[in-house]
Design a protein around this nucleic acid. Structure first.
Lengths: 203, 203
DNA sequence: TTAACTTCCGATCGATCGGTCGCTATAGTC
DNA sequence: GACTATAGCGACCGATCGATCGGAAGTTAA
């Protein structure tokens, strides 16, 4: 509430902050974390620039907060639902399927497509905390893929000569291609293609 | 030359324009086509903003010129050297290998990595001529891949049940993964991984 | 009731954005 | 040599950028 209504309490301040971060995630998926500007974001939320920036201190801190929030959404959508599955190929397949539907359907949260791909491409030629943060995220996810791939190989669910890191590399490329097909071409057959490629990779 | 030296002739004006576009390509691969700004570009080249913009009329025209130039470089590096190879699997393999070395080595021209990936991600959530241009480029390249894949299938160089569009989709994802591995992680094993994945895809 | 604290706003900052204007110096044309 | 066309410059435009500041409004704890 604004205007004549009472100001936010401390608890509501946190909700304001959450609102800002949530909107930042959506806008950044469209325009990137640099294309996201304080002025437009504040106008979009109906608050002042200074009131907005007061929650973070700097644009970079806001960018990091948005990235962290997006990471939490991604984890909740992709990794957590598969956490209880049997480690190895079973859990890996569950994660991969979640990953596809995440790219396919989370358009309400990320209208401009996977924020991580956007940010990775945007910051891979720069230096600083944001670049480090996005690199850390991708490293972590790749490591998790490798873990389950290794388990699957040891359990005989994948050919003995499978290189887990090789396969993880190919999986990530597959998802980047899927994201582009959806965002740039609106290709509705892309998810099916990804599943088909996955079946072949994990056969 | 500036200052006391003679002004550019008409022919030299074209060279000035080329210099601007060439520098734009390099800077845009680092910062994107939106992150590219007239002021910094002009300062970088040692000319005035108005003198620079006079060659194009608008930033968008400059962006399109840079994209066109990058496309010419890519075509000369990847497609033309393989143009005379035998259509089908032979030519396809030549193109794929060129594509890898292009991502691996063209860092003098594209210090920030593949400009097309950058632009595609940057503009996939927007509208306008730049988005249409980048989409057209990717469509064209994918179509060319499909053509050779189809020839290869008909010639029996690939399994009869191969879906050319499916394979082209996987190839493009592979290259996006390669570009990220190089730019974000400096992974020197990524080209070898890409070749290995290629061998399996085109076996 | 008061004092300390916090949220948020309005005003403002210097810098930079893309873009326009009139001008000068030169090149090409006759 | 006169005339026209053009490349490039310097000054400037309104808008917006990220960021800072002091103060108003409100909450919390004493």
């Amino acid at each position: 509430m604004r205007g004549m209504s009472p100001r936010n309490s401390f608890a509501e301040a946190r909700r304001t902050r959450d609102r800002i971060v949530e909107r930042s995630v959506a806008l950044a998926s469209l325009e990137g974390l640099e294309g996201l500007t304080i002025g437009r974001l504040a106008a979009d939320l109906g608050i002042s620039k200074s009131g907005l920036l007061g929650h973070f201190g700097s644009k970079e801190a806001l960018q990091l907060a948005a990235l962290e929030r997006a990471s939490a959404i991604f984890t909740a959508s992709v990794w957590e639902p598969a956490a209880d599955a049997r480690p190895g190929l079973t859990r890996l397949r569950a994660v991969c399927e979640r990953w596809i539907t995440y790219l396919e359907r989370e358009r309400a949260v990320f209208p401009g497509g996977c924020l991580f791909t956007t940010v990775a491409v945007e910051f891979d030629g720069r230096e600083g905390p944001v670049r480090e943060a996005i690199a850390r995220l991708f490293s972590m996810w790749r490591r998790r893929l490798v873990v389950d791939l290794r388990i699957a190989v040891r359990a005989g669910e994948l050919p003995r000569d499978t290189d887990p890191r090789q396969l993880a590399f190919e999986l990530i490329g597959l998802y980047m291609g899927l994201n582009q097909a959806i965002q740039l071409f609106g290709d509705r057959r892309a998810p099916a293609r990804t599943r088909r490629a996955l079946d072949r990779l994990l056969a």
